[in-house]
């Protein structure tokens, strides 16, 4: 099996070197890009990498804009932000723009490797076959887990990767209560960031899109103190 391809976007020469060396030692094939515009051009090309490690402060174009642009173009490769700007606002912004995880500099080598493995594991879960199939039907809404597109009353709405992952996580066990911690683990990874409150925000948006009356949901139910249950 060929090595999984990772792209490291980092303008600091030393950091790029030591990160890529260590990832290569783990068996990944690593490509380093040092400029924001060059990174966007590379990430638009096929084959898409299995994971992008993306700095925020970059010459040419910043990492947030790169992530936003890629997501708006429907490119859903996992993105791990590596940045010196690790204040809560920056973290939230990175995740809202579609980043999968956020690691503030300076970080531990072992933590970086752990996060990389966790993200790849999550995307492998998502790329694999699902007991829920590729489509979910909730009343007049049909959600395609592959294209992240929801067709609601004839209107096509692009869902984010995280929204689709949460829906699939719930759809794989219809009628069962899925704990918030399980959703965090499946969709975000091993650590407790973002908080469980973040899932609630995603659920609010999903209800707004998919429920006929978001105030009294018919499909996505909250189980107080535990998690959520989907009843298609």
């Amino acid at each position: 099996m060929s090595a999984e391809k990772l792209v490291v976007v980092e303008d600091e020469e030393h950091l790029a070197e030591v990160i890529s060396d260590n990832l290569e030692l783990e068996g990944y094939a690593v490509e380093v890009v040092t400029d924001g515009l060059a990174a966007l051009a590379r990430l638009r090309r096929e084959p898409a990498p299995a994971l992008v490690l993306l700095d925020v402060m970059l010459p040419g174009m910043d990492g947030f804009t790169i992530c936003d642009t890629l997501r708006k173009e429907g490119r859903n490769m996992p993105i791990l932000f590596l940045t010196a700007r690790s204040a809560a606002d920056d973290r939230v912004r990175g995740l809202e723009l579609g980043g999968d995880d956020f690691l503030g500099k300076p970080f531990d080598l072992r933590e970086l490797m752990l996060r990389v493995r966790a993200i790849l594991k999550r995307s492998t879960w998502y790329a694999g076959p699902s007991p829920a199939g590729d489509m979910l039907t909730l009343g007049n809404a049909r959600v395609n887990f592959k294209s992240f597109v929801a067709n609601i009353d004839g209107r096509e709405i692009q869902l984010s990767e995280k929204e689709t992952m949460i829906l699939r996580c719930l759809a794989e066990k219809p009628g069962e209560v899925i704990a918030r911690t399980e959703i965090l683990d499946r969709v975000w990874g091993y650590d407790a960031f973002p908080t469980e409150r973040t899932i609630d925000n995603f659920i609010v948006r999903l209800r707004r899109l998919l429920e006929p009356d978001p105030q009294s949901p018919r499909y996505i139910h909250t189980v107080r103190g535990t998690g959520y249950r989907l009843t298609p």
Binding site: H14, L15, D21, N22, M57, A84, K105, P106, D108, L109
Partner: peptide, 25 residues
Amino acid sequence: SAVTHEFKSPIASAKLYVESLQLGR
């Protein structure tokens, strides 16, 4: 932002170099 970047970047790379050496990588 500039100070954050200027301080944290060399700290991050120096730390990773040292950690790689400690782990025999």
